[in-house]
Amino acid sequence: MPVIDVRNLHKRYGAKVAVEDVSFAVEEGEIFGVLGPNGAGKTTTVECVAGLRASDGGTVSVLGLDPRRDRAELTRRLGVQLQAGRLPDKMKVREAVELYASFYDRPADPGRLIEELGLAEQRDTRFGRLSGGQQQRVSIALALVGDPRIAVLDELTTGLDPQARRDTWRLIEDVRDRGVTIVLVTHFMEEAERLCDRLAIIDAGRVVAVDTPSGLVSRVSPEQRVRFRPSAPLEDHLLRDLPEVRTVTRTGGQIVVTGTDGLLQAVTSVLARNHIIAADLRVEQSSLDDAFVALTGRPLD
């Protein structure tokens, strides 16, 4: 049984439809990604899941609870880190974590949580003086301080430098390893590909696909691409005659060959037979980016 079950969710603000029709299910213990460009309806979807907004249609069930009707119970089991959520600038890290711990019946230990999140040195620093990455870590701490079974993290790494982003990713994996189911909302392809067990791609208020990152990639184009610089002139037809090869293109001194599985082996054996050495040999597989373009018809960002 999924811990979060969203079916045909629909939400509009006045005449503007934010979420047209969204359905997905999140299984216990996984990191589930909600990926889509800005304005696709990701945040509205998670706000409906968190019970902050009433939906205009469809059903949402979180741990068997209705997010609107059973809000009090839901808030005890669901930790939420909202997009661009800040704290008063003059509140200290420890004060914030202890305050939010006091909101729950059985909270996590604030001191240990601060240490786990690498904020031990900043425990007496005011929120306004923390770096962006540290502020995000405080936000995660507040989402986890109630010892929730599910954590919803919205746009966690937006605005962070690459190092802080990588630190945050490691942190989220640690949290998952503690048995917390995580819903990660993001518009970073790399983040989704690296962290998520499964993904829902949302575009213009609709779910385009739900699958694992690799499943999404292979679904759209099981294509491989080999790029190399031959040491001696090479006739195109030698490659084109191979059953695995689909296209051969030349750009400058480079040859790019595309085809299906086993392409690399076929190409290298032809080259060996003709005593040609392939310099700068590279094999490229389709990425989630390509999958996204194929699924939505336009690139992310």
């Binding site: 902050l52 939420v80 909202l82 959520g85 800040r86 704290l87 008063p88 909101f103 109630g146």
Partner: peptide, 17 residues
């Protein structure tokens, strides 16, 4: 208004308080 701007109230809305 500062609390609203920072999302302090929204964050609290996700807790039992």
């Amino acid at each position: 208004a500062g609390y609203r701007e920072k999302g302090v109230l929204r964050r609290m809305a996700t807790t039992p308080v």
